[in-house]
């Protein structure tokens, strides 16, 4: 039962979180539809089912903070305030895309909104996120850097190098492991020495062991706010392990058949963060009309953004030769 008297989050923030998560869900669903229509090429890694994590951080972070995500990064990019057409347009290879088709689904970047890139080589961005955190410390400014990654990342060297460096230099950074139980196609427990791939390693770097239900949006928000405050106050890094589950396969090419039907059904029906949060909003006596209005608003935004993206021109071929160098070009000899 909800404790309405001691509600530390409040209606305004809850509706903000609801709107955020719904946007992430509906844009990912639209991305899936556009793939089926062959309007999006290449690959994509959807975060359907994992929206509470990116959503909570999106609500908790401030303008100016830095985020780094993986190739499964559409949701994390949108959560910082990037436009829907910027994301869908990039997936469709259109000029309205965040990088005008230069990067694609796995590399969404939107510096104006603090999205410092989506990284497709496992582990690398943990070390790079340390760099923006180091810059904040060096410049004596108070931005926080947040780095999202999957459970599989905990078994690559860069994870360990990055955690050690963040700790010894007391960097203002939050590492967020989204443990969706599968490292691509393989159950994470089959290939990891410890039960909790991130949290059980925290002690090795003198960090607290933090495990959170990543599908409980309220708990996720509380955990995010606490770690962000700690970093902003100069009290150093945190490592959070958020348990979650992806509703679809690893990537476009993967139907996810390696997962037991009962397990998938349980997560989809009983642990879906969106479905459960809607019920929670009603438990808190939030007017269903307000909830539905937000749903209609987001649906409308997604449809409009899709139209904008489809109408946006494809890139000009000359763009191949631009922006290798800071002078805008790609020349390598005189």
């Amino acid at each position: 039962m909800v404790d309405k008297l001691n509600d530390d989050i409040g209606e305004e923030k809850r509706l903000q979180l609801w709107e955020m998560m719904l946007k992430l869900r509906l844009v990912e669903k639209k991305a899936y539809d556009l793939f089926l229509q062959n309007l999006i090429k290449g690959t994509s890694h959807l975060a359907l089912g994992q929206e509470a994590i990116a959503g909570a951080f999106g609500v908790a972070l401030k303008q100016g903070d830095y985020t780094f995500c993986t190739y499964r990064g559409h949701a994390h990019t949108l959560a910082r305030g990037s436009s829907i057409e910027g994301v869908l347009g990039e997936l469709m290879g259109r000029q309205c895309g965040l990088m005008k088709g230069k990067g694609g689904s796995m590399h969404l970047t939107d510096v104006d909104n603090g999205v410092m890139g989506s990284y497709a080589i496992i582990g690398a961005h943990l070390t790079i996120a340390n760099g923006t955190a180091l810059a904040s410390k060096y410049n004596k400014t108070n931005e926080v850097s947040v780095c999202f990654f999957g459970d599989g990342t905990t078994n690559i060297g860069a994870f360990h190098e990055a955690l050690n460096m963040a700790k010894i230099w007391n960097l203002p950074i939050v590492f967020v492991c989204e443990n969706n139980l599968y490292m691509e196609y393989t159950p994470i427990h089959e290939v990891t020495a410890v039960e909790h791939p991130a949290a059980d390693r925290a002690g090795a770097y003198d960090l607290d062991k933090i495990i959170v239900d990543g599908n409980d949006a309220d708990e996720m928000l509380r955990t995010a706010e606490k770690a962000i405050s700690k970093a902003r106050e100069g009290k150093g890094p945190s490592l959070i392990e958020a348990k979650t589950y992806r509703h679809s396969g690893h990537s476009r090419a993967d139907p996810g058949k390696y997962r037991p039907d009962e397990e998938v059904k349980d997560w989809m029906e009983n642990k879906d963060p969106i479905k459960n949060y809607r019920a929670k909003l009603l438990d808190f006596n939030i007017n269903e009309k307000i909830i539905s209005e937000i749903e209609e608003k987001i649906k409308d935004q997604v449809e409009k953004a899709t139209e904008i993206s489809m109408a946006s021109p494809i890139p000009e071929i000359k763009e191949i030769y631009t922006d290798v160098w800071a002078n805008g070009g790609s020349e390598w000899h005189n």
């Binding site: 830095y66 410092m116 582990g123 690398a124 961005h125 943990l126 070390t127 790079i128 996120a129 340390n130 760099g131 923006t132 955190a133 180091l134 810059a135 904040s136 060096y138 410049n139 850097s145 060297g157 860069a158 190098e161 990055a162 050690n164 460096m165 010894i168």
Partner: peptide, 19 residues
């Protein structure tokens, strides 16, 4: 530390902010 990835990653991230 002897962490070449962490060294260059940190340098890259810092450079991204203008350092």
């Amino acid at each position: 530390p002897i962490s070449e990835q962490a060294i260059l990653g940190a340098a890259m991230g810092a450079a991204m902010t203008g350092l």
